[in-house]
Design a binder for these strands. Structure first.
Length: 503
RNA sequence: GCGGGCGUAGCUCAAUGGUAGAGCUCCAGCCUUCCAAGCUGGUCACGAGGGUUCGAUUCCCUUCGCCCGCUCCA
């Protein structure tokens, strides 16, 4: 079996220090990943590009950085604490697991037929509906396990006393209580100190709405942006960093006057799509997928996903559309809910018009890890340089803005003072904040190829001509073409090229 | 969490009931005056724990992790 594109990318990511599995020397931890020296640069560059384009280059968006642990009531108001867990049930006949609330209903005890083993051609067998009052959506069997809750939020405790210790201390007294009172006591002990890791950064912007309004003198339409970690106990995780329990979000909550929300929803949908294109993402691998009415979250009036065609493997072959970002019209749901639960008025009074309204929210919520993975996959290319020699080069064609290393500096050979000159150029570039890398080992061609593999857009080579007239060779990653420029002012040269790459 | 497959150097693979080889990579050096695969030397592995056995990487059990499917995905 030939290695799939995804496998090659995973290998490259590990070999070159983009992504490692977490705690690898201890056997690894499920669905947790670490970013290596190059991966952290790539992800940072993506986050910086997002912050720069979303906050710095606009006058109507400000930033925020909230704590990951928030008041538990935040999650009651948002609906996460009550609704984040869906009861799941296993079918004992066909082993299917399904959501209880989505299963076909049937009167408990009534006669039904189901398919043996859940197979399409399975024999039809008689059965009865269990006490739950629904049947398996796949085979129709009524022989089901009990309903189980899966809370998708990570719970921990705030305070120096471990609730487990409190339970142990109280266990003898609890034994004397009747079962209902015992359960209540247990829930009371756990609930007293329970706090949750945020499952999304969005709520931080909503609960700080008044703080931002009063301190920043912003008026709708305006946005609050935040970039940070969120946590969800996903039932299934897969495809490297695509779905993980700990992930980083880049979220914008854009507050607008009701009635203008649809216009702004359109605006941000286009803006977000174009953002990925501006960073070099291939158009044929990016699409906008509006949600069906039935898919919409309870708070959303409309939602569209920006999806990327990842090279994930599946039975149909390679490639699968996966969500990068969701743009939702959250209406005034969140501000109203927090008003209700906190008792604070989160509406906005417009002085000029003497009107009071609760803003609608347009939310572009992007995954930083998903974007990083998508840009990595999108950049991956194998180019046949010489068919006869079977010379194939692996290139990561990152946009210069997100490339981990911007410039590599080489001496053509390791003598005649070339290494010293090259090192001086590298240091000059570093001194100007341009991430650069020096290498003198092996043949020059091999060094170019090594830089191709990590996506460095430019290589600078010091040769004999440098020693006589001060010019150096610039080698382009994408075209492999070379040109000469003076080594004097080389930092400005690259700064300009980086600036130009934004346009 | 369920079903199926898998786990040998950094990567991709091989062999074996008597403690493991290769290619590429990596490191040191040589050679190299502009595009990989030249020469010399070197580092590095049987995911973890238990059992069977004189002896286990190989057989068995458990566990951890990975992949595929289901499921889930505010």
């Amino acid at each position: 079996m030939a290695e799939s594109t995804m496998q090659k990318i995973v290998s490259l990511a590990k070999r070159r220090g983009f992504i490692f599995q977490s705690s690898e020397i201890y056997g690894g931890l499920k669905a947790c990943y670490d970013y290596g020296p190059l991966g952290v640069e790539l992800k940072r560059n993506i986050k910086d590009a997002w912050w720069d384009d979303t906050v710095h280059r606009r006058d109507d968006v400000v930033g925020l950085d909230c704590s990951i642990i928030m008041h538990p009531d935040v999650w009651k108001a948002s609906g996460h604490l009550a609704g984040f867990s869906d009861p799941l049930v296993d079918c004992r006949n066909c082993k299917e697991r399904f959501r209880a609330d989505k299963a076909p209903r049937a009167a408990a005890g009534s006669a039904i037929t189901y398919r043996e083993g859940g197979k399409k051609d399975g024999k039809k067998l008689p059965g009865v509906v269990g006490p739950q009052g629904y049947v398996c959506p796949v085979c129709g069997s009524g022989d089901l396990s009990g309903e189980r809750q899966f809370n998708l939020m990570f719970r921990t405790s705030l305070g120096p006393v471990d609730p487990m210790q409190e339970i142990l201390d109280a266990v003898d007294d609890m034994a004397k209580l009747d079962p209902a009172a015992r359960k209540a006591k247990l829930a009371e002990i756990v609930g007293r100190s329970a706090v949750y890791l945020r499952p999304e950064t969005a709520q931080g912007m909503f609960v700080n709405f008044l703080n931002v309004l009063n301190s920043s003198r912003m008026k709708p339409p305006f946005g609050v942006a935040q970039c940070g970690k969120s946590y969800r106990n996903e039932i299934t995780t897969s495809n490297l960093t695509f779905r993980t329990c700990e992930f980083e979000q880049m979220e914008l909550e854009f507050f607008v006057e009701p009635g203008t929300d649809e216009k702004w929803y359109e605006y941000w949908s286009n803006a977000r799509y174009n953002w990925y294109i501006s960073l070099g993402m291939k158009k044929d691998r990016l699409r906008m997928r509006p949600h069906e009415k039935s898919e919409l979250a309870h708070y959303a009036k409309a939602c569209v996903d920006v999806e990327y065609f990842y090279p994930f493997e599946n039975p149909q072959g390679e490639g699968e559309w996966g969500e990068l970002e969701g743009i939702a019209n959250r209406t005034d749901y969140d501000l109203k809910k927090h008003s209700e639960f906190s008792g604070k008025d989160l509406s906005y009074f417009e002085t000029e018009t003497k009107r009071r309204f609760t803003p609608y929210v347009i939310e572009p919520a992007a995954g930083a890890d998903r974007a990083t993975l998508a840009f990595l996959c999108d950049a991956y290319d194998e180019e046949v340089v010489d068919k006869e020699k079977n010379d194939i080069r692996v290139v990561l064609r990152f946009h210069p803005r997100i490339a981990p290393i911007k410039v590599a500096v080489f001496p053509l050979v390791k003598k005649d003072g070339m290494p010293e000159k090259a090192e001086a150029i590298m240091k000059a570039l570093l001194g100007e904040g341009i991430n650069s890398f020096y290498d003198e080992s092996g043949a020059i061609g091999r060094r170019y190829r090594r830089m191709d593999e990590v996506g460095t857009p430019w290589c600078v080579t010091v040769d004999t001509e440098t020693l006589s007239n001060g010019t150096v060779t610039i080698r382009e990653r994408d075209s492999m073409e070379q040109s000469r420029i003076p080594s004097e002012g080389i930092a400005d040269y690259f700064r300009n090229r980086l600036k130009k790459s934004r346009e």
